[in-house]
């Protein structure tokens, strides 16, 4: 109870009240900072690591990404007569080692971040869902 006799005026609490009051009325660079997430999204950095996508012309199906993945996320599967990686995102660490390792720079991780799904099977992203074709300026 020493604190009452020392500081009966409760100046510490009053100081706190002033800080919260400043926030209520947004005084002095204290604006609302949140965004209304599903309706309004924040801009991602260009380097953001999200879902993988594979350049279908560049990928040579060499399997270096497969051997570099720390978690066994990647499997090389046949698709349309060529070999492409298949990502099991349920196991992915999003570390980016596959992207770094790819000798042809075919793997990008720009596929977004809203990846929740209802079953484990649908988390396996085969070539049909991750391939993209680079736009070539003619």
């Amino acid at each position: 109870m020493a604190w009452i006799s020392k500081n009966w005026a409760m100046t510490g609490i009053i100081k706190g009240f002033i800080v919260t009051l400043k926030h209520i009325f947004h005084i002095g660079n204290r604006p609302i900072v949140t965004v209304q997430y599903p309706y309004e999204k924040m801009k991602l950095a260009p380097r953001f690591r999200g879902r993988h996508s594979v350049d279908q012309d560049a990928c040579i199906g060499c399997g270096i990404c497969e051997s570099n993945c720390p978690n066994g996320t990647i499997r090389i599967v046949k698709y349309n007569g060529r070999w492409f990686p298949e990502f099991n995102l349920g196991m992915c660490l999003f570390c980016g080692l596959c992207m770094d390792a790819c000798p042809m720079n075919a793997i990008k991780m720009d596929g977004g971040y809203e990846l929740a799904d209802y079953s484990r099977e649908s988390l396996v992203y085969g070539p049909d869902r991750i391939l993209f074709k680079k736009e070539v300026n003619k």
Binding site: P31, V33, Q36
Partner: peptide
């Protein structure tokens, strides 16, 4: 709502 205002948030909006 009050919590939101104090904490630099909107509070319920939807």
């Amino acid at each position: 709502k009050m919590f939101g205002w104090v904490q630099s948030r909107y509070g319920p909006m939807v």
